[in-house]
Design a protein around this nucleic acid. Structure first.
Lengths: 198, 198
DNA sequence: CCCATTGACATACGTCACGTATGCGAACAC
DNA sequence: GTGTTCGCATACGTGACGTATGTCAATGGG
């Protein structure tokens, strides 16, 4: 196949930089993370960074894209394991709440991401998480399980509620106690979408 | 009363700086707003700023506090005008969605605020919006209108859903068309909290 | 097998913004 | 009326980003 040693090495460089950035952004936050330190930790310099990602925002976008993809994959796997699509939606929401408890996700995707890259729905990476949820919602509407609401708006609301629930949980004095409350409140809310309450 | 010319002038200085910051942060975003430009627009220099607010974050905190108070007041007024407390809660949510459409609120309170100041629930200003919603929820639970969920978690979820609905609306190609969809989806979700669905 | 070219990356520099240290001048105390 | 406080301006140091320029290895034709 011999894709060429050049492209191959460049991929390794990109992956290495994204990994270092992910760590630095998670620990120090976007604004406080120094490009010099970050690239040095990856055994490179800023030259590589600007060559591969254009600027600091481009690097953040790459990191967010990676995390977003991982989250969507995890959520999908969890939803698929549920008995019914409706249970799948609830499980998906709960999964998002738990994932958003990880400092990495919280700091990078929920706090710095929107502030630096703007609204997630217009991220180039076209938010995989949102798409996953939207498709689930659409299917549930088609099946008559949910009221005929707008699937995009609803997916956004559900994700927003879940992620905010996680922020609240993480900020509470005892997250372990808060988590079940957050998940319960989330499940209550979600029931409002059911065509036939109960 | 003669509070003293010193304190009086200092208040004017603070108000002037907050006003200029509010404008600058809204237009350029927190990171891109220059303290030099901002203070010059207020007819002052960075000296006044650091004397009054400590650092850039302190200034943002003051701005957020001001906007938060305004939003809470508006929401309360709107909720009070509703027929029942339950309708009040829905109206409050819709009001938040509409308020969050204003670029100023969106940029400062929803994007930069959390990223720079951290989770809103632990803001020194003890988020007036959240408190307003939480009290409404608590009353509705006491009245048996809502299921006995955790009021803090629920208030947070409701606000989060509403504010995210606004972000989605604002980012959509035609916000005028999206707004009613977002509000409808929000009302659906909220019905999940009712003790007796209908 | 050799050489020209491409392109990935390093290095050095300019610019700029934040935060601090120092100084001045007006309001208060006595 | 004098000394002191303190709000605010001014000048400076530091560090970070982004760019312009250089270098060296990998490719590909002759």
């Amino acid at each position: 196949m011999a894709v060429g040693r050049r492209a191959e090495k460049m991929e390794a460089t990109r992956a290495s930089l994204v990994a270092a950035a992910r760590k630095a952004f998670a620990e120090k936050g976007y604004a406080e993370a120094s490009m010099d330190d970050l690239t040095a930790a990856a055994g490179l310099t800023r030259g590589a960074l600007y060559h591969n990602f254009g600027d600091k925002r481009g690097l953040l976008a790459a990191v967010v894209h990676q995390i977003d993809a991982e989250m969507a994959a995890r959520a999908q796997a969890i939803a698929a394991r549920a008995g019914t699509p409706w249970e799948g939606l609830l499980a998906e929401g709960a999964a998002y709440i738990e994932m958003a408890l990880e400092p990495e996700v919280q700091r990078i995707v929920l706090l710095d991401g929107p502030a630096v890259l703007g609204d997630p729905s217009q991220w180039p990476s076209q938010n995989a998480c949102l798409e996953t949820t939207r498709r689930t919602v659409e299917r549930l509407i088609a099946d008559g399980v949910l009221k005929p609401v707008d699937s995009a708006a609803t997916a956004w609301l559900i994700n927003g509620a879940a992620l905010n629930a996680a922020l609240w949980t993480a900020a509470s004095p005892s997250p372990e106690q808060a988590l079940p409350k957050a998940i319960e409140a989330f499940r209550c809310l979600a029931q409002g979408l059911l065509a036939k309450p109960g």
